[in-house]
Design a protein around this nucleic acid. Structure first.
Lengths: 206, 206
DNA sequence: CGAGGGTTTGACTCTGCTCAAAACGTGTGG
DNA sequence: CCACACGTTTTGAGCAGAGTCAAACCCTCG
């Protein structure tokens, strides 16, 4: 896992709205975020957008493949730096150790996915939002950043989609937590003022 | 992907209730189902069980790891044959091609996970059940079996947990579909009598 | 035949969705 | 510099679907 930063070298700048890759494209590359935030999503047959994740500096944007093609798109939410690794040339030159490292990364990222599923399955609107904050907090502190200051460059619509809620439901939850002093929420960030209260909410699944 | 059956060789018999592995155990092995059905689940801090998947012959039981330890348990629902592969000795002897094959398997299984998430996020009780049936149907026909005859050795409680529904809600959905002639449901299987109706239900997400 | 687990059905409650309108914020043009 | 228009967010009222609690039913096993 600690191998990853070494594997990815060349960085590239993306502006808000720039795509790392889009659904249907050949998946030739792996992407490692260095700064900013990346959102992944896909659009179903009825044209509805489903946000599937937000990725922070230090994280690898997961590849979800169908016959070697990306099944989702990845877009920058703010000005971001992202390193790219071509998997084809990588396969020739890489050692088996690196292949195993990437494999292990895939296995351990399944855990994140599992926790997310749990949040979606059970859990009130408040629990889902609190769970989201907790997850972001953990990931931020993994990268050595302030776990109580969560950047939110995405729209509320994006966040609601990710949480499987309507925009209105999410807005109500945030308002309530704001007026009760548990959080402070601006357009660009959420500040956790009472971590204990949030922890209780997050663990209270239905 | 077609490499997988070759990689796994030695088969082993499990009785209903026998564990392939349990949460917290060292994850030294990979498991490939040959017959029967395997259920994976985990138990949260409050002691509630969350069913995370059901695995058919021909499929690999996914490893969800936390610091090299299993974060979920896998148990046989009926008499099953399962092949086991020790990953440690495998790492020494395996070629890079095999490592890459297992890595690609992990990447493509993320797609299944994504579809499942979509079902959980949006979707009424009927849509979730129909989506479950559709998913099982696809996987059954992948293995050359009848896609309209879905074996259900798990309890309704298990199925409800997997779908993020209460036992009662699931029961009501099944009853309704049964009396309207869309499916035939017995304790051990579900027979799809009107695939078109089920397809409509599954795609109707909220 | 009785006991127990699993399942079905019923009545009621409540949370989150829908529809609708108002408020906010930002950028553009007069 | 202000007015307006558009996108985003907030707030409100009413409703529907899933959850909860409870009782009856079914089936298997002892």
């Amino acid at each position: 896992m600690s191998l990853l930063p070494q594997i990815f070298q060349v960085g590239c700048a993306y502006q808000p709205g720039d795509y790392l890759f889009t659904a249907g494209e050949r998946a030739d590359d792996q992407f490692h975020v260095r700064s900013g935030m990346i959102k992944t999503y896909f659009i179903n047959s009825e044209g509805t957008e489903y946000v599937t994740g937000f990725y922070l500096p230090g994280e690898v944007v997961p590849r979800v493949l169908e016959d070697g093609l990306h099944s989702q798109s990845a877009v920058a939410l703010e000005t971001s730096t992202v390193c790219r690794l071509n998997t084809l040339q990588f396969r020739d030159t890489a050692t088996k150790e690196i292949a195993v490292a990437l494999c292990e990364h895939a296995e351990s990222s399944a855990l994140q996915s599992l926790r997310y599923q749990l949040n979606l399955r059970n859990g009130s609107a408040a629990a889902r939002f609190a769970g989201f904050c907790a997850q972001m907090a953990d990931r931020l502190s993994n990268q050595g950043r302030d776990r109580h200051h969560i950047p939110t460059p995405m729209t509320r619509t994006d966040m609601a989609s990710y949480l499987g809620l309507t925009l209105e439901s999410l807005s109500r939850v945030i308002s309530k937590l704001k007026t009760s002093g548990v959080i402070r929420a601006e357009k660009t960030f959420v500040e956790i003022k009472e971590p204990e209260t949030m922890a209780v909410l997050a663990s209270h699944l239905n």
